[in-house]
Design a protein around this nucleic acid. Sequence first.
DNA 1: CATGAATGAGTCTTCATTCAT
DNA 2: GATGAATGAAGACTCATTCAT
Lengths: 207, 207, 207, 207
Amino acid sequence: MDDNGLPRREREKLRQRKEMLAAALELFSEKGYHNVSMHDIAQKAEFAIGTLYKFFRNKEDLYKALVLEQADRFHEALTNAMKEPDDEIEKLRNYVMAKGEIFRANISMIRLYFAETRGASFNVMAGLDPEIRQRYHEFLKSLASVFENGMRRKLFKTISEPYYLAVALEGLTNAFLFLWLEAPERYPYPEDPDAILDILFKGLIAS
Amino acid sequence: MDDNGLPRREREKLRQRKEMLAAALELFSEKGYHNVSMHDIAQKAEFAIGTLYKFFRNKEDLYKALVLEQADRFHEALTNAMKEPDDEIEKLRNYVMAKGEIFRANISMIRLYFAETRGASFNVMAGLDPEIRQRYHEFLKSLASVFENGMRRKLFKTISEPYYLAVALEGLTNAFLFLWLEAPERYPYPEDPDAILDILFKGLIAS
Amino acid sequence: MDDNGLPRREREKLRQRKEMLAAALELFSEKGYHNVSMHDIAQKAEFAIGTLYKFFRNKEDLYKALVLEQADRFHEALTNAMKEPDDEIEKLRNYVMAKGEIFRANISMIRLYFAETRGASFNVMAGLDPEIRQRYHEFLKSLASVFENGMRRKLFKTISEPYYLAVALEGLTNAFLFLWLEAPERYPYPEDPDAILDILFKGLIAS
Amino acid sequence: MDDNGLPRREREKLRQRKEMLAAALELFSEKGYHNVSMHDIAQKAEFAIGTLYKFFRNKEDLYKALVLEQADRFHEALTNAMKEPDDEIEKLRNYVMAKGEIFRANISMIRLYFAETRGASFNVMAGLDPEIRQRYHEFLKSLASVFENGMRRKLFKTISEPYYLAVALEGLTNAFLFLWLEAPERYPYPEDPDAILDILFKGLIAS
DNA sequence: CATGAATGAGTCTTCATTCAT
DNA sequence: GATGAATGAAGACTCATTCAT
């Protein structure tokens, strides 16, 4: 996908790095940062410990790289999902669906995602994560602009500030994803995005 | 409050336990489970390490007790807030306000709360927490019943299942609390509950 | 000797510390700082590794404590040897003899001594040792004052500055000690101090 | 100097070996054996690590080769300095001067020299150095013969055995070199060799 | 033949837990 | 019954050495 045109050596390096990160993702998402040793990762990735350290300065560095990479992949996918349609309502539908699809396909990632974006701020990234917070914030702003445009086009009522609506939609979808993560059988993330969006769209109060 | 009628010995024990948990709460919420040692807790609580082990079988046990206790206190307070008024809309308003008040008053708790309920499930409680999940689930059901009653009384439209609405409101308020936790100055949790509830109540889509 | 009047606990601690330092001295002097692990020391001293760390912050700290302690013991003994007699010549004789006796009795110490005072300055103490250099320097000054007084009393000719004479005598005795360290049988450190001092005293050049 | 008449291949090899040893000397003398990695040496010498291992069986071997080579260079230079003059007193003067010159010009070497000849015997060479000890011993004997001849020619009084006088002069000059190494500004190694030799020559005791 | 990526044994250090006092 | 000294398993990280390219 992205290793075209690179010297063979470099491609090989990239492949190894990917394997290390894949092993780390699986382990970290399953047991958490502090319950995974470099030994574990090395073993799972089938490299020597020393080799890990050729690619990442230390355990924290490896973890940070992993989180940033996943977050980027994730935000990029969501941003793309909202690009295509012109209609803001369609954009939101695509966002809700894409979020579900991505997570369904990458259950390890969702675990990291929740640990990092919503887990208490004291965790491993404490102090390091301004970068990831920043990117999350920027993503929220791009989501907010969808609401803003919808309002300008009179598609949406002005029931709250766009940024808060973005926060609200994030909270809403996360809540459903979290539910699904807990009990996938019982609470599947809905195929039809309106199952979630209607909560936002329709208004609970009977006129 | 709850040490009435107990023999002096028992009351003394309870007081000590409380002090230990208070010290633990402060430390865990600030630095996270893995960055706090039993030594730290013993020192802060001004007990010997051995004494800690008289009250809790091990570090995990202490942590679990702490989380359960906090969650109980929290859910109880929310449940109480929703008891008083008859009107379901008022119930929800009280819920939103109470949640904000409790968190504002117990910032240590909120950290634990997010770490445990939304942080990826791999953390320290992994495997232990069915108990806490269970209680959280029960709380959600009691919140759901508010929506259910509101629907029955035709106060609310049936835009989604009550349980999902409960999940949605949880997600919504959590999102705002999380925002506030990140940048208290910039994103204060609203004094007026309608600032949040309107997102649920009014309906975004322009008719 | 120095644990009189201390609470039992403290005396016990001191005894343990001594045992640790004794084990460390033997090992370090035999194999050198980098070829001795904390595990080795713990084993030889018959303590758990963790216990070592209760007494010394880290390996370097343990080493530094050891070196300082030995150097102090050594310089103190030499200073004492020079106190008793009034006559400067006798002082120097006592110094030469005491130096030999101390080293003969503490062969481990001599190894450390040479490693630290004459070994290249890049070793473990690099950066830490200003303290030990300072003490060595002060000892040299007290030795120099013996020469100075001898000159004032016209016992000694003024063939060089007192400080340089002190340095010279240090160099002389060290050379013989070093020789002895290499081949104790073949080159015993002389019982009679004049065997060394005559080199300084008599003058090589035939008038 | 010594690669004359060798096939080109061999000369090339010798040049590489020299570069490696030069890099190693600088690093070892600055940081000490244990704080220099083969990687460091390879990098400084601009060779691959594997190439280093073509020339030296292992790190210790490289170090030993370095020390031997330096010691040879050093002893040879001193021996030469003592060859020219017929007069024994002049020989000693030349020796003292040459020693100072060599060290002043090769401060890296002096560090190694002290680390190996006077540093406690436990260091890296422990066990390996009989070879270097042997050469040092032989050098001492050639120095001793100067004293012996001086005595035979009645230039010197017989105040001690020639070998001990050699040891004494070594100790004397080393002490001054060491002083200079510590504080070059404050204690320069004397230009005039008699500043040192007079200590040996004149006799301290006032008749 | 030079290269330097890969290896993994070995090191320092921390900390949950025990138990003699 | 409380204490906290002692324990030692476990983890992050380094670096001498090898060997496929």
